[in-house]
Write a protein that binds this DNA or RNA. Structure first.
Lengths: 215, 215
DNA sequence: ACGGATTTGTGCAAAATTCCACAAGGATTG
DNA sequence: CAATCCTTGTGGAATTTTGCACAAATCCGT
């Protein structure tokens, strides 16, 4: 009864949690922990244990009743579910402070993602190499380079004003997924996967919470 | 019938959307647009118009039937609701690539947030000035400086391994809200507001989507 | 081999969230 | 000033998400 995909519709929240589980399983694996129960994992992740079991149940039965889950095995399965059993090729658009930070981070990004191309609009930057080795291409070359390198995920780290254009170029190059760091809602055609990383929104949430807490 | 706070429990999602609305209202305001209807705003934000109206209804009646919302007025009200009618004092812990990017960003963060103190654990960095002018303090001084400067929001941009310690220090200094960029679930006492900015999780979501789309 | 201890997998109820559909309110026109 | 047009505000239904509670399954000690 393994790997039975129940293709109703899997909540986005479930996928997000799977990602969080994988992070802890990775840590546990490195600590040498062999087996983990949903209760322990739940505590670490701040999630209800039944939620964890239900999340996993969407994809199959991975545990042993009375025992728990084999850490390495569950990690492998989750990574397979998420599609992390391959290396995804990414392109970065916008080599400002944030973009540079992302490139520097790339060694820390756990296995599965790689920047194969980087772009900027500033002629002064084009042609130079970033510290991680990639040559900065002009965004004018974006479509050619993206196709040539087989980029699958576009990462937008431009100012808000340039983000939509960057998205359009990525889309017309055939990229189907975008990670957007610009504080703007991208207008994209049906079927595109877009995820926004937006810390100004998170800050506003904190400000609201603090304001409410005091009255 | 204005500003009637209905204190049931306002969904986090509503607060997040208010933040997004404020972003567009700001843009509209600068473009000189005086009035906006929920349908137009909804289209821009990729949100159902009824959702917008319901979100606003939690806090009062801000529109005019048959007309729409006065842009400036609604923006003002939303900012008031979110607690952005003041400047929040933030501390940054971890002056690596990401931390530096955040500091560089600070002029772009729309009015309402300010880094009043920055910390790092690296003795080589302590005492130096970041480009935006702040002197880097040792994390050993964190409690003293945070209290002295009246920091309200802590921003953690350390590696994952140091994040929990940073959180503990911020908490013991009396900070009640944390914006966490480290890919880890912080363990914090009841009543703390924590928001995570976690692009690895978002990437995993994209990877999953791409994997599913192809089969 | 059996009973007790443990933890998974899941049916179902509760809670939360979204969204439709329409009445209510206000503007505008003739 | 009545009729018409528009858009808000909202009751409630539909949908989604969460979490309890328990049966099913496995291990372990005797």
């Amino acid at each position: 009864m393994r790997s039975v995909m129940k293709f109703s519709k899997i909540p986005t929240a479930t996928i997000t949690r799977l990602s969080i589980y994988s992070r802890y399983l990775e840590a546990l694996s490195q600590e040498g922990v062999k087996i983990i129960a949903s209760d322990k994992l739940a505590l670490k992740c701040g999630i209800n244990p039944a939620q964890i079991r239900k999340d996993l149940a969407y994809f199959g039965e991975f545990g042993i009743r009375g025992v728990g889950y084999f850490v390495k095995e569950l990690l492998f399965e989750i990574k397979r579910i998420l599609g992390l059993n391959k290396t995804w090729k990414m392109a970065l658009v916008g080599i400002g402070n944030l973009g540079s930070a992302l490139l520097a981070h790339q060694n820390f990004i756990r296995q599965g993602y790689e920047f194969v191309a980087v772009f900027d609009i500033d002629p002064a930057k084009v042609g130079r190499r970033v510290p991680s080795g990639q040559i900065i291409h002009s965004v004018d070359e974006l479509e050619v380079v993206v196709k040539e390198k087989g980029v699958e995920i576009g990462v937008i780290a431009t100012p808000a004003a340039k983000a939509q254009m960057a998205a359009l170029r990525l889309i017309s190059s055939g990229v189907k997924a975008i990670l957007n760091f610009a504080p703007i809602q991208l207008q994209v055609p049906e079927g595109m996967a877009v995820e926004n990383v937006d810390f100004t929104v998170k800050l506003d949430n904190l400000a609201y919470n603090l304001t409410m807490a005091e009255g």
